[in-house]
Computed example of a mutant assay.
Amino acid sequence: MSTTEVQGMVADGFETVREEFAAVTAEEDGESGAQLSAYVHGRRVVDLWAGDGVAGDTLTGVYSATKGAATLVVALLVQDGALDVDEPVARHWPEFAAAGKDRITLRDVLSHRSGVIGVDGGLTAAELADDRVIAARLAAQRPYWRPGSACGYGGFVSFAIVGEVVRRVTGRTLQEIFEERVRAPHDLDVHLGLPADLEDRYREIRPGLADPEELAAFWANVPGPHSITGIGYGLNSTPPLDQVAFLNTRRVRALGQASAGGVGSARGLAAMYAAAVFGLDGRAPLLEPGVIGEFAMLHSTGGDLVTGPHGHYALGFQAKGPRYPFLSANAFGHNGSAGAESFADPLHGIAFGYTRRRFSFNWSYPEHDRLAAAVHRAATAS
């Protein structure tokens, strides 16, 4: 078998998705290793994989796709009446009020409008492994812009704030609640804290490949480590964070920090969104329609100080309607730096998950558009 041979299944009517996935993985010549999974109205219709060291149940680092899993916990607690996203964070965590942060709400944090995207001097990789350590450092930090005045993505730290609020309100960690209420009941291959007995299924993230001249040209235009973009991506520490190495560290996977420390598969990501919005295996959806509507609603549009003009956010989730115009306006989900993508489209009944093992050197993943479009075409045609 060549490393690019596609394995797995597609339901009748989804053969073109297999063809598109085969084309994508052939272009990578098996170097990335990738998985693709999709559900339509709770029925799995795509389950594919290809490439070096990858099987259908392989687990790998999903980076900020973790934020989607963490947001489901917040949505459940809002649904329960245990959390109010419009209360100031400092109401539950008084130390957070320091340095002008007393009015920042959980909604500000979830929509990336808090201005709290890192700390002066940066956070080391060891500190970024642990949400409690991140939260302690953020408590004294002054925001990098006036809260509410702009949007900017806190790639590695935003959900440490969310997690600290969850812990103080419920007495339990966000990771514990995710395990009990989301992952375990549906046996999902998405983990905020990978158990040691599943380590043999984990495959390391790899660095991106590029022509040396192309790579040099890219880095010549990358903002500095102490710019807004550098701070948002955790590059202002000494040494700067090595994102490739981050989830290849056992401690990071074991703790499962809620912004970027999750581990999963395409099956797990797609099933998670299917369980949340449409229901799986005869179970009712995790979220009620009104809660889905609130969390899927556009909150921050028109550009992002950290990531650029294409940053569009719902509440905790990325807004996928602006990202993929063929989806419905209220499609929502989250991608990740190493190339993971995941979302739900409530109108069209789609839940989508994709993973790959290799970073793109410039954080660009054009196959997302191709694969999401292929799944959408097949789902709407059938």
Score class of each variant (00 low, 15 high):
Met1Ile: 08
Met1Val: 12
Ser2Gln: 13
Val6Pro: 02
Gln7Val: 02
Met9Trp: 00
Asp12Val: 12
Glu15Asn: 07
Glu15Phe: 04
Val24Ala: 14
Thr25Ile: 08
Ser32Phe: 09
Ala34Thr: 07
Val46Glu: 01
Val46Met: 02
Asp47Glu: 14
Trp49Lys: 03
Gly56Phe: 04
Tyr63Ile: 10
Tyr63Arg: 15
Thr66Gly: 09
Thr66Ser: 15
Ala70Pro: 05
Leu76Cys: 08
Leu77Asn: 07
Val78Thr: 13
Ala82His: 09
Asp84Arg: 08
Val85Ile: 15
Val85Gly: 02
Glu87Gln: 13
Pro88Arg: 06
Ala90Glu: 01
Ala90Tyr: 02
His92Val: 03
His92Leu: 01
Phe96Cys: 06
Ala97Gly: 03
Ala99Ser: 14
Val109Ile: 11
Val109Glu: 11
Leu110Thr: 13
His112Arg: 13
Ser114Arg: 04
Val116Cys: 07
Gly118Lys: 08
Asp120Ser: 12
Leu123Ile: 07
Glu127Tyr: 08
Asp130Ser: 12
Ile134Glu: 05
Ala135Asp: 09
Ala136Lys: 14
Leu138Ser: 10
Ala139Gln: 01
Ala140Gly: 15
Tyr144Cys: 03
Trp145Gln: 07
Arg146His: 10
Ser149Arg: 12
Ser149Asp: 12
Ala150Pro: 08
Cys151Lys: 10
Gly152Asp: 00
Tyr153Pro: 10
Phe156Asn: 13
Ala160Ile: 12
Ile161Gln: 09
Val162Gly: 08
Gly163Cys: 08
Arg168Ala: 05
Gly171Asn: 02
Glu180His: 07
Val182Glu: 05
Ala184Ile: 00
Pro185Val: 01
Asp187Trp: 01
Leu188Gly: 00
Val190Gln: 05
Tyr202Thr: 01
Glu204Ile: 03
Pro207Ser: 11
Gly208Gln: 13
Leu209Ser: 14
Pro212Met: 07
Glu214Lys: 14
Leu215Arg: 15
Ala216Ser: 11
Phe218Asp: 09
Trp219Ala: 10
Pro223Gly: 10
His226Val: 12
Ser227Val: 08
Gly230Thr: 11
Gly232Tyr: 04
Asn236Gly: 09
Ser237Met: 09
Thr238Leu: 11
Pro239Thr: 09
Asp242Arg: 13
Ala245Cys: 00
Thr249Ile: 11
Arg250Thr: 10
Val252Gly: 11
Gly256Asp: 09
Ala260Gln: 07
Ser265His: 04
Arg267Val: 02
Gly268Val: 03
Asp281Val: 03
Arg283Ile: 02
Arg283Asp: 10
Leu286Asp: 00
Leu286Val: 01
Phe295His: 10
Met297Val: 01
Leu298Pro: 13
Thr301Pro: 00
Thr307Ala: 15
His310Asn: 14
Gly316Cys: 07
Gly316Thr: 07
Gly321Ser: 07
Glu341Gly: 00
Ser342Pro: 02
Pro346Leu: 04
Pro346Phe: 12
Leu347Glu: 15
Gly349Phe: 07
Arg357Thr: 08
Arg358Gln: 15
Arg358Tyr: 06
Phe359Glu: 10
Ser364Leu: 14
Glu367Met: 09
His368Thr: 03
Val375Glu: 06
Val375Ala: 03
Ala378Gly: 01
Ala379Ile: 04
